[in-house]
Design a protein around this nucleic acid. Structure first.
Lengths: 189, 189
DNA sequence: ATATCTAACTAACAAGTGTTAGTTTTGTAA
DNA sequence: TTACAAAACTAACACTTGTTAGTTAGATAT
């Protein structure tokens, strides 16, 4: 069920504020003030503050899950899969820079949906881990601790939302290419 | 001025809770309860909640600044400097996993010290940027957008605090080696 | 014009917030 | 044992929090 109209505006405003100060530090009055209305008016459109966080995080997490499924089902090499994942992260992150902040920093404040989120996250990591391990077996990837590769890649991909908006007029295409090169081929000449 | 005795215990407890829920979601009563005392008792030792955050973040940021200065003043190649920085981050992060969380996620809640923190952070990034640019000029590093290299390295190094404690009986020495290899030489065979 | 719907409003609530003041307990040294 | 400092306590404060109840203004449809 897609929320529509005013509700979307509230969610958008909330994401923006959540990114700047974090979920807990943002009050309903903050959100209302940013929209030039009173806090109580928000409740004509939403159920609770918690619902805002849930919607922001879960819909984004599901987008990643969908993307991962597509990558896994694509019949290509491990390296090619990793390249697709880099592109996936750049794409989603550049289109959801605010929501990505909540996904990364405020997930622990989920209540009813916390377990579901953790499951999605665990599955995502497990899938990426398998791609990396397969790559090592296939001799596509150097024989280093797969956990280190997993950690390094995910850390960078998860931070994209911070950097992308800082670079004005960023050429997404070029950026994806450069990032892929750095992540996969390293930087040493 | 190093705080001593009970104050250190409070700071330690606070870091732990700040890591789990973030600064704003942790109350003075939470901290007190974790120490089996009442919230008011905390004020025999500290000035304010804000002081806790300041101390945690600033002392850590200054540690990074000191480390960076040492690296810059060491007369070695750019690649060697990057290797030293990886080791620096692993070292500091593994010894301050809780405080690192505040440094990364709660710095925006600094008040009086916010500008000072931002300056330290900016200087640190600027120094790392220069090392990378020099490496490209020297032909030690491939000719790719230095911003991408900077972003990728820093993202990984800043996330160390999350991963290090998740791996029990982690061989720090080996981990540093593996991470350096992945970050600098890439993963493609 | 009347009714309906949407979305704003005012007012208030119970609970929780950081912090202060003043007091009592506890451990140590004289 | 007495004196003193450290560190706990109780009680309370002023303010902020998310949220509810009930009401009103403005647009649209009959």
């Amino acid at each position: 069920m897609k929320p529509s109209g005013r509700k979307i505006e509230i969610i958008t405003t909330a994401s923006l504020l959540f990114k700047e100060k974090g979920y807990s530090a943002v009050t309903m009055r903050d959100i209302a003030k940013a929209m030039d209305i009173k806090a109580a008016s928000l409740y004509n459109h939403i159920k609770s503050k918690q619902e805002l966080l849930s919607h922001i995080i879960i819909s984004l997490a599901e987008e990643f899950t969908t993307g991962m499924k597509a990558v896994i089902n694509s019949e290509t090499s491990s390296i090619e899969k990793l390249k697709k994942l880099v592109a996936l992260h750049v794409f989603i992150s550049s289109n959801n820079t605010q929501a990505m902040a909540s996904l990364n920093n405020d997930w622990m404040h989920l209540e009813a949906q916390l377990d579901y989120y953790l499951q999605l996250r665990k599955d995502y990591e497990e899938n990426l881990r398998k791609i990396i391990k397969d790559g090592i077996k296939n001799n596509e990837i150097i024989d280093v601790n797969p956990e280190v590769v997993l950690f390094s890649m995910l850390s960078t991909l998860r931070s994209l939302y911070v950097w992308i908006p800082k670079k004005e007029d960023l050429d997404i295409e070029q950026f994806t290419q450069d990032l892929t090169a750095v992540l996969l081929s390293g930087i040493v000449k």
